[in-house]
């Protein structure tokens, strides 16, 4: 019915598919093809190399931890911005998007400068014995920075739409504030919180620009997986770079699938409690 009235189905879909094919699918096919060049044994050897393992562990572990912290702080900031009224609220709300808008290389050198031993925050942290720049902790800080807006921005619409009645009912039934939060509010927010978590995670796993400056890139210590790909390319080891790229894509795909499963489970949790 519709198809007959509105024009342009063939041309718009055809154009979109051709464009996606040329820009996304063809290059990804080249990636898979090059990666297959090193064979299964080569892949195993590459992935079991201590340096690769250390880098993958840092990229995945750091991203998981950063996404977790972002879920907690993002919930707090989102809650404060939606629920409370205070001077400058809109300005702070706009500020949340800064990590999206600030180019990663700029964020990278700014964070390094800030957390370096002679930096504004670094000097102060040094006194209490915490080293951030050029350590895995620095990688983590940069990952929290780039992933921060995701949780806040996914939560905000849901927080705004959250029915106050349920909270008030819980409280009139004698629930304490923290009980209301953990038993009523959190289960309702859990699926959305997980969406934000997954977005922050996906971003942090592959993050490059904001991390490499503050990481110091010490092999086996503060070297991230995307940097290994760059190094392999610089040594003209195209097959190795491609294989590592495929491995990273598969790993982040697995992570996201597990988050999606967790989300399904939390959806049921939310339905049960509401």
């Amino acid at each position: 019915m519709r198809r007959r009235i509105l024009p342009g189905f063939g041309i718009s879909l055809g154009y979109a598919l051709a464009y996606l094919g040329l820009i996304v699918l063809l290059p990804l096919a080249a990636l898979a093809w090059k990666a297959s060049g090193i064979g299964f044994e080569g892949l195993l050897r590459l992935l079991s190399a201590p340096r690769t393992l250390a880098a993958l562990r840092l990229s995945l572990g750091g991203a998981l931890l950063a996404a977790l912290i972002n879920a907690v702080i993002g919930l707090l900031v989102g809650w404060v911005l939606v629920r409370y009224r205070f001077p400058g609220r809109r300005l702070f709300d706009a500020l949340v998007d800064l990590p999206f808008a600030l180019p990663t290389a700029v964020a990278g050198i700014a964070l390094t400068n800030l957390y370096a031993p002679n930096g504004w925050l670094g000097a102060w942290l040094e006194k209490i014995g915490i080293k951030v720049a050029y350590t895995p902790l620095g990688v983590f800080v940069a990952m929290v920075f780039v992933g921060f807006p995701f949780v806040v921005r996914t939560l905000q619409p849901v927080l705004t739409a959250l029915e106050r009645d349920v909270e008030e009912a819980a409280e009139s039934l004698g629930a304490r504030r923290w009980q209301t939060f953990f038993r009523v509010i959190l289960p309702m927010l859990a699926p959305t919180l997980l969406t934000g978590f997954a977005l922050a995670l996906a971003r942090a796993v592959g993050e490059y620009g904001s991390v490499i400056f503050i990481a110091g890139n010490i092999p086996m210590h503060s070297e991230i997986a995307p940097l290994l790909i760059v190094q392999k390319l610089e040594q003209f080891d195209y097959a190795g770079a491609a294989a590592l790229g495929v491995a990273m894509l598969l790993l982040s795909f697995l992570l996201l699938v597990s988050v999606a499963l967790l989300q399904r489970w939390s959806n049921r949790w939310a339905e049960r409690t509401s």
Binding site: L31, G206, I229, S252
Partner: peptide, 24 residues
């Protein structure tokens, strides 16, 4: 949505594999 979940480094890498000296 795919390009959002691919590491920027891999986004560059795929074109090197396609058009680089050793590419397709």
């Amino acid at each position: 949505d795919l390009p959002f979940s691919v590491s920027p480094v891999i986004s560059g890498l795929v074109y090197v594999l396609l058009f680089g000296a050793q590419g397709w």
